[in-house]
């Protein structure tokens, strides 16, 4: 018992219990195995998909799209957020537009993105970009605005240049909140990639699920779902690790 640490033990119990419940439900549901496969069949399907390389190929395709769209969103969203956070006039001009576009689901953009970018990676990347861009802009703006104004006074007092204000005050000051926002946003991006792949492309985990449904292989559908969940968990874990870097420890230990 001692060998397994408690933080691992509890989730393990939960997952085992879920598996057991799933097996029982599958046995007694009265649905055929084609409609509601049990864990064993799903596990066998998983082995098939891993062995023939399909799972890896689809997972890599999805991760590539998420990474591309997410990086694009960071590249444009964070600088824009800094601008809006520091420059009131820019915020007054652009904020209404951002707040108007923000509640439009990225999925509503699917027809347009297919028309504009055709078939392939591009429309999917565009949708992920849209899904992560607006939350990032909004949270970066808020993060910059919530930096204690006394630090800007210090910057003025020590004759900071504009560049130094950005690198020495704004970026480190907003980092803790922005990292939290990145953690939430990457989850949103991961949610959207699956939906995007059901429409415009011939690879990725979303495509795997759709294709398996058409082939009436519900075990493959569930395999796709399991891998999506596992990668989502992994992404969240990576982002949580980022939150432990040294230079942002001040934010969680009573600093301002």
């Amino acid at each position: 018992m001692k060998a397994i640490q408690q933080p691992l033990l509890f989730p393990l119990i939960t997952f085992s219990a879920t598996l057991l419940l799933w097996e029982l439900l599958a046995l007694h549901s009265g649905w055929s195995e084609q409609v509601f496969p049990g864990p064993v069949k799903v596990f066998v399907g998983m082995c098939e998909l891993i062995c023939n390389g399909a799972m890896l190929r689809h997972a890599v395709a999805s991760l590539f799209r998420v990474t591309a769209g997410f990086y694009l969103a960071i590249l444009f969203g964070i600088p824009l957020g800094i601008l809006l956070g520091r420059w009131r006039t820019a915020q007054q001009f652009l904020n209404p537009l951002i707040q108007f576009l923000r509640p439009i689901s990225p999925l509503a953009w699917i027809p347009l993105s297919m028309l504009w970018f055709g078939i392939g990676d591009k429309p999917a990347v565009f949708l992920i970009f849209l899904a992560s861009f607006f939350p990032l802009v909004v949270s970066t703006t808020a993060a910059v605005q919530s930096i204690n104004p006394v630090y800007f006074h210090v910057a003025a007092n020590f004759n900071f240049s504009r560049y130094e204000v950005v690198t020495k005050i704004i970026i480190p000051g907003m980092l803790p909140s922005v990292l939290t926002a990145l953690r939430i946003t990457v989850t949103i991006a991961w949610l959207v990639v699956v939906a995007a792949e059901m429409i415009a492309v011939k690879s990725g985990l979303g495509y795997l699920i759709l294709d398996s449904r058409n082939a009436l292989r519900m075990d493959y559908v569930m395999d796709g779902m399991i891998v999506i969940g596992a990668i989502g968990l992994l992404l969240d874990y990576v982002m949580t690790r980022l939150n432990r870097i040294d230079s942002i420890a001040w934010a969680s230990v009573g600093g301002r």
Partner: peptide, 29 residues
């Protein structure tokens, strides 16, 4: 006409930059 490093203000509440070490804070000057 404005703040300048010729006259430094020590603020009432802790105005050390929390993301910099003591060394780096002193280095600002």
């Amino acid at each position: 006409t404005g703040p300048s490093s010729d006259h430094i203000f020590v603020f009432q509440h802790n105005a050390l930059l929390p993301w910099l070490t003591v060394w780096e804070n002193v280095e600002l000057g």
